[in-house]
């Protein structure tokens, strides 16, 4: 150690370089050997070291790779213990001879050093047996579905239906923005609403109500968390219900044009009919008239026409009702008639 140059001693103190100690030792020893040789003779100044005397270049330490694990995997192993969680694709651990990608001329590249396979999401952690195991594990936290709770009873006792979605992931990140959406469905027949309240609710709610199934659907996604959206949906329902029960003072200014259904007695048609039937007396007071059966039929026909929509059937009903009202014959007689 005595002949070590100074820089060597300092270097050797650094732990990092202590690993390379054997190499250092050999190079140093060779130098010592050479120097010892040369002390006998005149030391020749070597400007350019000959290749033999150059210190052995540190060859890159070849890390001996073990053969891939897949070679020794038994065919009947438990895959869920091999791949328990979401992880990016690792070729040496997945015993499938997968290929993906293009080569200009030749075969698709294999799984080793294939970036494409790593980019793709993979669900190796959620194979069907793994999912079955999850279900088995969760079963002990579950109780069986009560038998009495069939569809009818569900609707009767639990009229509010809340729908949420959860998403599986192929990566360790579990944030999914779609998971915050909460859909709340309720049948309006389950709510106690009088005529005015129902009309007001429908106007407030607009397109969210489906008249064919009588279901009101509220979809909330304005909050970042599912819980917040759920609470907001419940709040919305409560607010809607109570608001529709109230009657504001300005609601009395509702005109005929605002009416959501056709009320014959409030419309011009009523006056027209009365005027026509009672001509030449003009009709001022429209409230005290009794409706004859023809007028009843006419009222029904025109209300249907307006409320249910116009088609050939409602029009023909209207026609018949009008004919009866005006005392015209049902249909053409076959015989000759002269005016």
């Amino acid at each position: 150690m005595a002949h070590f140059p100074k820089y060597m001693t300092t270097v050797l103190c650094i732990p990092r370089y202590q690993k390379q100690l054997p190499y250092v030792m050999t190079s140093v020893y060779s130098q010592i050997a050479r120097s010892e040789k040369q002390t006998e003779e005149f030391r020749v100044l070597e400007l350019v070291k000959k290749s033999a005397q150059r210190s052995a270049r540190r060859k890159a330490k070849k890390i001996e790779l073990l053969p891939p694990r897949t070679n020794v995997m038994p065919v009947d192993q438990d895959w869920s213990s091999v791949w328990p969680g979401p992880r990016s694709f690792h070729p040496a651990s997945v015993p499938l001879p997968l290929r993906q990608g293009y080569n200009k001329k030749g075969v698709s590249p294999g799984k080793f050093a294939n970036a494409e396979l790593m980019k793709i999401p993979n669900f190796l952690h959620l194979t069907p047996p793994a999912i079955k195991k999850h279900c088995e594990a969760l079963k002990k936290f579950c109780t069986p579905w009560p038998e009495e709770l069939n569809d009818e009873n569900c609707e009767k006792h639990f009229p509010v239906e809340v729908i949420t979605s959860d998403y599986c992931f192929s990566s360790p990140d579990i944030r999914e923005p779609m998971a915050r959406i909460v859909i709340l469905k309720v049948k309006l027949s389950a709510l106690t609403l009088d005529k005015h309240a129902k009309d007001k609710l429908l106007r407030l709610v607009g397109e969210r109500y489906d008249p064919s199934t009588d279901i009101l659907t509220l979809t909330t996604d304005r909050c970042p968390l599912k819980k917040q959206n759920y609470e907001y949906a419940l709040y919305l329902l409560t607010a809607l219900y109570h608001e529709s029960q109230k009657t504001e003072p300005w609601e009395s200014e509702k005109t005929v044009a605002d009416m959501e259904y056709y009320d014959w007695e409030q419309n011009v048609s009523y006056k027209n009919v009365l005027g026509t039937l009672n001509w030449p007396q003009s009709v001022k007071d429209t409230e005290n008239f009794k409706l004859t059966p023809e007028m009843e039929e006419y009222k029904k026909a025109i209300s249907d026409l307006m409320n249910k929509g116009e088609d050939l059937y409602t029009i023909s009903k209207y026609k018949e009702a009008t004919k009866k009202l005006l005392n015209l014959p049902e249909f053409l007689p076959l015989e000759y008639t002269t005016a």
Partner: peptide
Amino acid sequence: LYQLGKEAFELLDPFIP
């Protein structure tokens, strides 16, 4: 009803279509 429009219908009502 669709072709006449509301106003015309109210004017003509009751009529025989």
